Structures are given as structure tokens and as C-alpha cells.
Simulated scan of single mutants.
Amino acid sequence: MSEPKSLEGVFHLVHMIKRHMHEQIEQLDLNISPMHMRVLKIINKQQTCTAVDIAQLLNRDKAQVTRLLNELIKQTLIEKVPNPEDKRSQRLLVTSEGMEVLAHLTTIDGNMNNKMMKGISREELKEFERITGLMTENLARAD
């Protein structure tokens, strides 16, 4: 497989995933983007999560993360509380409304996963995960 076709295949897959995610979110009448979804999931998964953690995990600058978090706060999906471990920062928590959205997102993720994996064997999926992991590592190390 030539490099340009591999790269084009990855772009096409990412585009299709984003398109289907947007469609699913719109059907549920959720006013959030896939990036908001990622942030909600991260906050929910991390026992102690701060804005700095989000910026590092997403490899985004603090201003972008602040805008994302402010939008989620405005929609009452997350809240900031004092961080007992560091008085200079605040912890992020998912609200009950945010937990409801996460429940919908879990359904969306399951549907997307089932649709994407149709006709793909476990061995093929493991190989795909191995290869994409290697590609990610290569790019992380690239100058």
C-alpha cells in the first residue's frame, strides 16, 4: 500500500466517523461537538481532572481548552470545584445533566462501534489497532 493511499484512507475514515457522530448527536438534539464529547468523557474518566490535564491529553493550548470548558459550564454539563490537592487550580466534575449526556454518548459510541466493526474479525481489529498505534507513535516522535 502506498503512503498517499494510506494517508487518504485514514483521512476518509476520520471524516466518516466525524460525520456519523455529528448525525447521531443531531438526532439526539444534543448541542455539543465531538470535541465536547471527548472532554466530557475525559473529565468523567479521570478521578481528578483539571483544565491543564485536558490541555495535555488533547494536545491543545490552554485558551482552546478554556473556551471548550466554558461552553460545557454554560450548558451545565460540567462544573468547577476547588482542588484540595492544589489551591491554585480547580477540579472539573461532570454534573447530573452531563451524566445524562454521557449516557446518550455511550449509546452513540456503541452504535458507531457496531457499525464500523461489521464484517471485521477480532484478528483484523487487533492488527488495525497495532498499526494505528505504531503510526501514532511515529508521529509523536516526528520532528
Rank of each mutant, 00 (worst) to 15 (best):
L7A: 05
L7V: 10
F11N: 07
H12L: 15
H12E: 13
L13F: 09
V14H: 01
H15Y: 10
R19A: 05
H20F: 12
H22W: 05
E23T: 10
I25F: 06
Q27M: 10
L28F: 10
D29C: 10
L30T: 01
N31A: 13
N31V: 09
I32G: 04
I32V: 12
S33I: 08
P34S: 09
P34T: 03
P34D: 06
M35H: 02
H36G: 06
L40M: 07
K41G: 01
N44T: 04
N44L: 06
N44C: 06
Q47F: 01
T48F: 09
T50Q: 04
A51S: 15
D53T: 07
Q56L: 12
L57R: 08
N59R: 10
R60C: 00
R60T: 00
K62Q: 14
A63P: 04
V65H: 00
V65C: 05
T66P: 01
N70K: 11
N70C: 10
I73C: 07
K74E: 15
Q75M: 08
T76V: 14
E79F: 03
E79G: 05
E79K: 13
E85P: 00
E85H: 13
E85S: 13
E85N: 14
D86Y: 09
R88T: 15
S89D: 08
Q90N: 15
L92N: 02
V94I: 10
E97Y: 03
G98Q: 07
M99T: 12
E100A: 15
V101S: 07
L102T: 06
L102V: 09
A103E: 13
L105T: 05
L105P: 00
L105Y: 00
T107C: 11
I108G: 02
D109P: 02
G110C: 05
M112V: 05
N113S: 15
K115T: 14
M116Q: 12
K118Q: 11
I120Q: 04
I120N: 10
I120P: 03
R122T: 13
R122C: 10
E124A: 10
E124R: 10
K126E: 13
T132Q: 07
M135C: 03
T136D: 04
L139W: 09
D143S: 11
D143F: 07
